[in-house]
Design a binder for these strands. Sequence first.
DNA 1: CTGAAAGCGCTAACAA
DNA 2: TTGTTAGCGCTTTCAG
Lengths: 367, 367
Amino acid sequence: MPATIRDVARASGVHISTVSRAFSAPHLVNPETRSRVLACAERLGYRPNRAARALITGRTHNVGLIVADIANPFFPPLIKAAESQARHRDYHVFVADTNEDPAAEEELVHALAKQVDGVLLCSPRMSNSLIEQLSREVPLVLINRQVAGLPAVMMDNGQGARSAIDHLLALGHRDLALLGGPRGSWTNREIRRSAVAAARAGGADLTVLGPNPPTESGGSALAEQVHRCGATAVLAYNDLMAIGLIEGLDALGIRVPQDVSVVGIDDIALSRLTRPKLTTVATPAAAAGRTAVDMLLQRDATTRAGRGAGRGGPGDDRRTTAQVMLQTELVIRDSTGPGPAVESHRAAAGGPDRQRTTPTANAVVAP
Amino acid sequence: MPATIRDVARASGVHISTVSRAFSAPHLVNPETRSRVLACAERLGYRPNRAARALITGRTHNVGLIVADIANPFFPPLIKAAESQARHRDYHVFVADTNEDPAAEEELVHALAKQVDGVLLCSPRMSNSLIEQLSREVPLVLINRQVAGLPAVMMDNGQGARSAIDHLLALGHRDLALLGGPRGSWTNREIRRSAVAAARAGGADLTVLGPNPPTESGGSALAEQVHRCGATAVLAYNDLMAIGLIEGLDALGIRVPQDVSVVGIDDIALSRLTRPKLTTVATPAAAAGRTAVDMLLQRDATTRAGRGAGRGGPGDDRRTTAQVMLQTELVIRDSTGPGPAVESHRAAAGGPDRQRTTPTANAVVAP
DNA sequence: CTGAAAGCGCTAACAA
DNA sequence: TTGTTAGCGCTTTCAG
């Protein structure tokens, strides 16, 4: 039986409220009394029960973090950053994994709701309306998802996709493919929209393949299709898929980057370890984790509703609901190379030949 | 303001205790009443506050899981397995990361203690005595660590190291090196002990390098030393170090497996993605996560102390404190090859590249 | 089967 | 500065 506040009170000959104050409002108690209380507490191995404390203060000093898949190397740096940021502020992070299952997201938010002061929802796949509804149950901060009225920190994957496509274009590629990510992913839509726009602006064809599971096997399964569609350069939804694709192409005897160039997104640690080293769009995952925690905790601090506060109707003070956009950056490594040789012709001729209203399907004839 | 049990009671015209029973003891309430209550609850969006419930029942329906480093690919499969196993039993898993800092372990156990029904301590680096002390504060199940009297699930890394060394010996290597892991790691001691014994039994030299950080950079930093010590085959504390070592050797112009053979431990997903594919000792991480949760929950079920129970003195019923040993298995891939003198034997000895033994036969060490 | 009452461990007015 | 008194939201005797 762990010691309770009452045991400490008895042992130090004071009232329990004094013990309580000794811990949570030290300045309100006589230094001598305080040290005596602390000594007794120490001796008895007493530690305040945070759950009981939360019941009355309404503050658990915990935050929840829901991610789709801990095993996806994109998340751990984000998780670690969130944890360390939270710990600096004396908060703990409870990490939960949905296994890429949208239904699990809702369930987890409910389960966490009463045990945390807020939830960081990372790349949620739920509908906007469900997210809004959940946000009335517990403060939410979104990561990589935008919903009107809710705080969010996003990584500029649109910009990332654009620079990746531009890079490929600059290398002379004109037949591009995009490996789409999972259905319901906001990030995926951003990437697709930007990639399509950038390809069109560059006068290139872009075949969109997907949706697909955002995993290595999801990527390798697409090797055939990529080959068949005649693309000489591919942008993948994430590094895992890019790496999988390279594997798959390798199995087909297609070399990267000699035959096909591949670009990923995320810059996970792994992308430096595979051969060829992956060209990819670096995504500020750690910064996102830190920022999200900051936003949640700041919001949390301003949200305190005193005991027995009103019904908290729709007139609520939804103060600074910031939406932060973090920059991404193309990292060029070894998985991208020059496009087919004939391209030099065209490059010399017109440069970025903008505005092809009729995308001439695979007009380029290989030698 | 989320609805409380009182709101539901008022709305459905019953006493709060009836609402309570409708949720936690359905058979004790009239089906009609129950469905009316449930309907009201549904309408009000009421969900029982688990924290408040925990305060009185003493059961939070949460378990904690403390790992050294979420970013180490060894852990995610274990975490996911633990989560899914827990969820089947209506428990949640709170994952925390110590950042390889032993001091953080203690702090986290304390912080979690009151919010969970038990803690899974994964490869803890603390002293035995501290672990024992903490186990009096909250039920503990150890993973990859053995402390007398405490339930534990271990992976037989000793056996794994032995089979790795034997494999190397069989390939004709006589100058071996072991890349040691972090200080304080029980697993590391097991590996070293077995590797040393196996090498000696085979009449080979084994140089132990370490302790080292169990990371990729920890491994690559050792390339020089490995080279200098003249080893032709190396066993690393884990796959990450093995992969790092291969990188480092590559930078030195040393080829794997032609010049040096390398074996890892863990069989993380990454080990199939690097070139050469890593020969490694597969470790049943997922099974360990599942088993640990089972042990904790089973123990938890038997531990219920009724309200106002006695002081729970030293006469406690420490029932089935099992220590389970999970088997490991050598997976031969491409990072190991014949030793210096026996090139010609290869074809003769070769054969298909694997020797997956029987799946996890678990030995139970009695309490 | 349902209600009344007594708390779980703690904090937060309000007095003293 | 300290003690008293109410609870937080819920479960659990014990009556009825």
